[in-house]
Nucleic acid binder design. Structure first.
Lengths: 116, 116
DNA sequence: TATACACCACTCGAATGTCTATGGGAATAA
DNA sequence: TTATTCCCATAGACATTCGAGTGGTGTATA
């Protein structure tokens, strides 16, 4: 009771993982492992993508028709499930980034309201 | 199954409500109803603060010692519970805004990586 | 006077998403 | 052979939010 924890990266940004994944797939189809590493590296390791969050997210996106998947071989010759952005997913990404920008600006306005 | 919903404001920003409340209290003690309206107005109605989120959040912040509370009379002569930022809360706010900025930049880097 | 309304606090259950932990399988290097 | 990296996946715990509902009190208005 009365926990005193600073929220982790994704706890503070719940819901943005979907957007990050979709955005990553703009660059072309990729499998889970790669997607996670791309996000982590692009964010300069500020964002961490746990497997326990990644795979449920990928399945969620597939269920919603925002990505399609197919099995293939990875760059390291392993079985890998590739995900590809669908037209619907592309549209969804635009909607989400738009919302994201709006939210960030809105929060920025609140945070900027220091002493007036 | 296979729900097709665009995340709501706070679903996409889970965990930021605490930060927004703390930030609002920088301006001075306030009661719940006012805090919500200040956040909504400052954000130009982009952010919505539901009562079902607000009051649990306030109690959470009090449990963690980031705010203290006392009963008083509102501007409209009603009984109201005022919340005041504690020293610990001030420190927490700095930590959270710092993290927030870092996250926003990190996500920005991922989103900027459109076509390379 | 009655009554409508805005103000103010609070709670509950459902839904959602993340985390930690755990499992397995397959290719490659030591 | 063994260790390690790569790759997918799930289960249970946990936190937060949301929608809806409860209850009470000043104040204006009909």
């Amino acid at each position: 009771m009365a926990k005193n924890k600073t929220p982790s990266s994704q706890e503070m940004l719940q819901g943005t993982l979907d957007m990050l994944i979709l955005q990553t797939l703009i660059l072309g189809p990729a499998h889970g492992h790669t997607i996670a590493r791309v996000i982590e590296q692009t964010s300069e390791d500020v964002l961490q993508v746990e497997q326990g969050s990644l795979y449920p997210a990928l399945h969620r996106l597939a269920d919603r028709g925002w990505v399609s998947s197919y099995w293939g071989a990875s760059e390291n010759n392993r079985k890998a499930k590739y995900y590809k952005l669908t037209a619907k997913g592309r549209k969804q990404l635009l909607a989400e980034t738009s919302r994201w920008q709006q939210m960030v600006e809105a929060i920025g306005r609140v945070l900027a309201r220091a002493a007036e």
